[in-house]
Amino acid sequence: MSELEHHVRALWTLFEPIHAVTYFSPEAREAFADIGLTRYWDGYFAGRAAPLGAVTAAPVVAIFSGFAPFLVERVLPAVWSTVTVDRVLDARSRGAATTLRNLVPDERSVAEAADVLAEIAARVDTIGRPLAAANSALTVEADPYRRLWQAAATLREHRGDGHVMALVEGGIAGISTIVLRSAVDIDATSVRKARGWTEQEWAVEVEELMTRGLLTGQGEISENGRVAVERAENMTNQLAVGPWRGLNDAEIARIARTLAPIARVCQTVFPFPNPIGMPRPWDPNLDPNASAVPVSPRAS
């Protein structure tokens, strides 16, 4: 991994927590409930997919990767008969902004972070990246809290689109990914339920991964499995570099120091370890070279 790739991975640990408040904060759930999306997964799938338009379940299953089709099909496309895309987009932005405002009352620091991150988000490469493309096409809002969250969302989905590409290339996309990750750093029972897979579907995938030599006979990750996960993560890191290319070390450090205080506060909203496999934020002041940021998923 190049130095730039590692720093971009470290920066991901700073903008991912800002984006992820939309999945964990009560303010975000309340904003969706206000428009009639009272069930958690209604808000999740409608909110995350809304930039794509009123899509059906099939493309969301494909683009998001890892979710059982049944879980998505319970929400889409039925939700679009009760609420419009525009209302969902406003609710997700409003809920995230309210969360950030409560966590970080200092609007000046948020405005600075929003300006910095929005400039990077405007540079994302979107070919083959549907979620990044859809998010980057949204109108940039004046409110700094909304603008910061949207920039973080665009960059997060840019990395996520690249991650799915890497998983597909490695033959471990979909349920394979989460079964393998549950053998590394995510609790198997909670992630299985969170992604909507039945015990039987999970067991079948475990057997398949054993047959492929990616899990041992005891269901632990094998050396080949670890290599597959790390290879996909390395490719993800490579594919995430685009919008950051051309920045020097001083510019990266400045961006990191701007985002880090906000990321540290945002991390209080969700648990560690968590079902999305997010590591703790990089501290660029204590660790300027990001030496403590893991280069791939690892046991906590």
Rank of each mutant, 00 (worst) to 15 (best):
V72Q: 03
I63M: 11
R74T: 06
L52E: 11
S81P: 03
E73S: 12
P69F: 06
D42H: 15
R87S: 11
V72Y: 02
F67R: 08
G43E: 02
D42M: 15
F67V: 04
V60S: 12
P59Y: 06
A68G: 07
A78M: 08
T82Y: 15
F64L: 13
R48N: 05
V88R: 09
P77V: 01
R39L: 13
R87L: 09
G47A: 01
F70I: 03
G66M: 00
L71G: 05
R48G: 05
F64A: 09
A46W: 09
A57H: 06
T56N: 12
A57T: 09
A57E: 07
R74Q: 15
A57Y: 02
L76M: 02
P69S: 10
G66N: 01
L76T: 01
A50C: 02
G66Q: 00
A78I: 03
L76F: 01
A49H: 00
R48S: 06
R39F: 10
G66D: 02
T84W: 09
A78N: 13
G43V: 00
T82I: 13
L71Y: 13
Y44E: 04
P59H: 05
A54W: 07
E73I: 04
G66E: 00
R87A: 14
W41E: 10
V75W: 03
F45V: 01
V79G: 10
R87Y: 03
E73G: 07
F70E: 10
L52S: 12
A54K: 09
G66P: 02
V60M: 15
Y40P: 09
V83Q: 12
V83D: 11
G43T: 00
V61T: 13
P69K: 10
F45S: 04
S65R: 11
I63L: 13
D42G: 14
I63Y: 13
F64G: 00
G43Q: 03
W41C: 01
G53E: 10
A78S: 14
R48E: 04
E73Y: 05
A62D: 07
Y40L: 14
V60E: 13
I63H: 09
I63D: 08
Y40F: 15
G53T: 11
R48D: 02
P59I: 03
A68E: 08
R87K: 12
F67A: 05
G43M: 02
V55D: 05
V55W: 07
V61M: 06
Y40H: 14
T84S: 15
L52N: 11
L89S: 04
I63A: 12
V85D: 11
R39K: 14
F45I: 01
V55N: 05
D42S: 15
V55Y: 06
R87W: 04
F64S: 06
T84E: 13
T82H: 15
V75S: 04
A57Q: 07
I63P: 01
V72F: 03
V60W: 14
L89G: 03
E73C: 04
L76P: 12
S81N: 10
A78G: 14
W41P: 02
W80L: 10
A68V: 05
T82L: 14
R87H: 11
R87E: 14
G43I: 01
A50P: 00
D86F: 10
A54F: 09
A49T: 02
S81Q: 12
Y44T: 03
D86M: 08
A58T: 14
L52P: 08
V55C: 06
